[in-house]
């Protein structure tokens, strides 16, 4: 009896979680503009989606800002993490608090404070300002992915390389970098995903003519239901799903590697 109750409850929660998404996906194949009626299977919303200049532009800007911001954030964050790792206790605490600040403060405050900064310093709002904003909120996540790898690192390895005659740059490239690489890649994928997923910060820091997919969905949804958004949602959901499965696989592989005694 108790077991049945458990399963009924769990099914109810899963239904609550999945029903809207599934219905959204199903109706992206519906030949009618209205949700209530099913006029048959169609792919016309997908065709229209790819013919829509506004949406294709948004796709371009989303990908451009995600690729560039995640690459720059990875370089900035990896360098930052290495520096932080070697800091003295008090300084480290201060910098780590600075790193957590954008993670805990509400997106709307991060977004509008950056907007104020850009307008105040007369930076034209557009692709450039949005890219700067994305790098700003992405970099802390790279730091938080790389730092644990640095902590696992055996610090004598680097010294051994130096003793054996390697230059610091060579030792870094051959000894440290390969060891922290999994953390760097995880951080980069995380930064990319967060960038694609972001709405609020992009919304405040972009200018006219430059919008991402999230912003396009928002402005279309405000005007009401549009089956093209369903098609777009389906594609975006599948993309993010694939990306996160990759990140997840990497993370679980790392934890198993970490417990693997042959590596110690």
């Amino acid at each position: 009896m108790k077991k049945h109750l458990k399963w009924i409850y769990a099914s109810f929660i899963y239904l609550f979680l999945y029903a809207p998404i599934l219905i959204l996906i199903i109706y992206s194949f519906n030949d009618s503009r209205y949700r209530g009626t099913w006029n048959g299977f169609t792919l016309k919303w997908y065709v229209q989606l790819f013919q829509d200049r506004q949406i294709m532009n948004a796709l371009y800007y989303t990908m451009a800002v995600a690729v560039l911001s995640s690459l720059i954030a990875t370089v900035l964050g990896t360098a930052g993490a290495i520096g932080i790792h070697h800091m003295k206790k008090i300084k480290k605490t201060v910098v780590m608090n600075l790193t957590y600040l954008p993670v805990v403060s509400p997106d709307i405050v991060t977004g509008l404070s950056l907007m104020i900064l850009f307008i105040f310093s007369q930076v034209r709002l557009g692709f450039g300002s949005m890219l700067l904003a994305h790098i700003t909120f992405n970099t802390p996540y790279v730091i938080l992915s790389v730092l644990p790898k640095l902590k696992q690192l055996d610090k004598h390895l680097y010294e051994a390389a130096l003793d054996l005659g390697a230059t610091p740059a060579y030792a870094f490239q051959k000894v440290i970098l390969p060891e922290i690489m999994p953390g760097i890649i995880t951080g980069m994928l995380l930064a990319f995903t967060l960038s694609v997923d972001d709405f609020v910060i992009s919304f405040f820091t972009t200018g006219s003519g430059v919008s991402t997919l999230s912003i396009t969905v928002y402005s279309m949804a405000r005007r009401g239901i549009n089956p093209k958004i369903n098609a777009l949602s389906t594609l975006m959901f599948l993309t993010v799903l694939t990306l996160l499965i990759i990140v997840n696989k990497r993370m679980s592989k790392e934890t198993t590697n970490h417990h693997d005694p042959s590596r110690v």
């Binding site: 998404i21 959204l24 997923d197 949804a221 958004i229 369903n230 949602s233 975006m236």
Partner: peptide, 12 residues
Amino acid sequence: MNFLLRTYAWMT
């Protein structure tokens, strides 16, 4: 899933 899309799903 993007929270905007999840919210939009409830609109429909």
